[in-house]
Write a protein that binds this DNA or RNA. Structure first.
Lengths: 233, 233
DNA sequence: CGTTCTATTGACATCATTCAACGCCGGTGG
DNA sequence: CCACCGGCGTTGAATGATGTCAATAGAACG
């Protein structure tokens, strides 16, 4: 896990907080907020909390989820380094999710004030933020499409491909990464039974398309998997 | 249809363009854009078009959809009076959907310039726009939840309830409205087969929960339907 | 007035869930 | 140190909900 922390630091220079902070610091030197660290299972904010800040994932990963009245948990998103968390809060100025970390992680906090400042004072900042919100909408629509038009295997493959994209920028045909979430979380997120996830992983492993070793996943040929998805549209 | 045009005009005073225009007009008198009208089947913009404006539905309804490589159409949203259309474009400054009208409709255009102006110059405008984008994200997450956690009947009931909310603010227990979209569109949007939609509507009609007459839908007891949804969480 | 689109209904097939049993692993306490 | 326990994961068998295929009929539109 320490190894992963180090390897993800490279994302720092592309991450949202840094772009934003660059904008903010033009006008107010010294406002740079220090990252705060969390351990696995800890929470960042909870559904119903007052919406007074956004957060940027620097290192690690987390899940957003909302609870139904019966206490049931529905995961709406996973977050990785560079991601903005909490954008849904503007609707009612209240957080509509809870966020819980899946591993040792660190995040930066951006107060609503700073956010507004970046929006007003900097063209780059404004464009960056609008683009991020917009991108989130598009991402969700992609997931939506995946849920309505793809069967279980296609959904899982798309999920794995998305993960590999976030973990690794290398262009090598095979990619290795470690799942920071349980199969239970994956099943919840993709709207299928955990047994189905398990069966599909085993089957693809047997077919040699992927390798599964506990939480470590190897995609043997990323292009093949992409082609499989495209073919089934 | 003309009757419906008239009855929807009341929404005008709550609609997005009017709030925005109020903000814009504080600084630039006379920029008020005139509504443009469209007929059923006509398009507003298409996937890939340059993103240079947002649109506000004044009267009527429309669907947003994206096309897969094979030309297959996936509906991501329906739009009703007051809705902002095109917010996803900020991501890559290109429209990621096509929009097609389902009936005689009229829309206002808000150029990106005006949009930015409202964002920069007016606190109300900025908050309104962020809140709208945020709300869209939340709405999509609701749909997502519906797709993963609800069965076909629950999804259809939720869809009908959402529609009735948009059509009618009255608090009477029974609500009547007319579907502007085909069952094909509904099936596409909800990720189910058109035959399933048809069967469910017939069944609920037979049970006396709703009345179905062509495209006209009567929800006999809205609270009952809401209770049904809640019970099945 | 015919062609095309939309909608309904039935019979059948199938994929994914559910139920159940079991193994593995990490943590915790005796 | 070992035994126990709870959470996670795998696999099999049976069930059921929803999709697919097919036939038909009405509505819309030129």
């Amino acid at each position: 896990m320490r190894r992963q922390l180090l390897s993800n630091v490279k994302n720092y220079e592309h991450c949202a907080s840094c772009t934003l902070l660059a904008c903010l610091c033009k006008q107010r030197e010294g406002t740079r907020s220090l990252p705060r660290t969390f351990r696995r299972g800890e929470g960042l904010f909870r559904l119903g909390d007052q919406f007074d800040a956004l957060y940027v994932m620097q290192v690690g990963s987390a899940k957003s989820f909302s609870n139904t009245v019966s206490g049931y948990e529905q995961i709406t998103n996973f977050h990785f380094p560079g991601d903005l968390m909490g954008l849904e809060g503007f609707d009612k100025m209240v957080h509509v999710h809870s966020v819980r970390f899946l591993e040792h992680s660190s995040v930066c906090r951006i107060s609503i004030n700073d956010f507004n400042r970046a929006l007003i004072d900097s063209d780059t900042g404004r464009h960056f933020l609008l683009s991020r919100m917009s991108h989130l909408i598009v991402d969700e629509q992609q997931l939506l499409l995946s849920l309505t038009k793809h069967d279980a295997k296609q959904r899982l493959v798309k999920f794995l491909l998305d993960l590999s994209k976030k973990h690794n920028q290398s262009t090598s045909p095979s990619q290795v990464f470690r799942l920071s979430m349980t199969r239970i979380d994956i099943a919840n997120y993709l709207g299928m039974a955990i047994e189905t996830i398990s069966r599909l992983l085993s089957k693809m492993h047997a077919q040699g398309v992927i390798k599964v070793n506990k939480r470590q996943i190897t995609l043997c040929d990323v292009d093949d998997l992409r082609a499989y998805l495209l073919a089934s549209e």
